[in-house]
Amino acid sequence: MRYLAAQSVAEATGALAAEAGVTRILSGGTDVLVQLKAGMVEPDLIVDVKKLPGMREIRAEAGGFRVGAAVAGAELGEHAAFCAAWPGVAEGFQLIGSTQVQGRATMAGNLCNASPAADSVPALVAGGVVARIAGPGGERDLPVADIPAGPGKTNLKKGEFITSFFFPARAMGASDAYLRFIPRTEMDIAVSSAAVNLTIGADGKVSAAEVALGAVAPTVVRVPAAAKAIIGTKLDDAALAAMAKACEAACNPIDDKRGTIAFRTHTAGVLACRAARIAHERAGGKA
């Protein structure tokens, strides 16, 4: 195995493209090192991308934010303006692992590890966040929702890696929330999870919404029917019940050591409703 602390994007993409064997990107390393330890992967090349320009920056862009792909959870959590605009994204990201893991873990790593239970992904999907990808052929932008291809698989091509995420400008009355279910209070992988991103219109009703669920399908899933159930409402009980039902219908989970199909399906709906209420309150909505 070789370790390369790349100094430029070109050096990183070039080395990744040239390596015939197994490669891994090191940004936070909180998944890669676990896989190394367990012998799940034996890379021929690890490219450390943390030192590339902009990778650890959070900056304003087009009324929104551009967040470098190697920004750690603890770093994003310390950015007050970002957390005010995207509280659901910030809380999802910061739920990954312990305080120690937060010192290292990145959204790009969480996304590219491609676990359906990744805590940072549902809020990115619900937020319509777009990833910027560097590759041997140059840069391209791809919505986060289009990156996971299945458990452990992404749609990135050989030599490609994420350099940043773009969070669009926030409308008035917009906010988001993320909730997950875990058996303990910390340190677990989500058994099911839900992110809701919504906007409240001048009439006090939800004017736009996106709902994404985690750990209930091979990838994080958008649930347009659940969003539709709350659009045009003030989150009354009937709307939330319809939303829960739509969420349950969108679930296609597995039975495993962390939860049953029935448990995941039911709690996904419960969490989506709770997240919707939180996002609604954050957006200034009144029940």
């Binding site: 303990r184 910390e186 340190m187 677990d188």
Partner: peptide, 24 residues
């Protein structure tokens, strides 16, 4: 201890063998 149908231990680590943490 969670065993799979294959008789193998499914949760051989502190991630899924969940001992109480301080915040619990």
């Amino acid at each position: 201890y969670i065993y799979g149908r294959d008789g193998r231990l499914q949760n051989a680590g502190f991630l899924d063998y969940r001992i109480p943490v301080a915040s619990d």
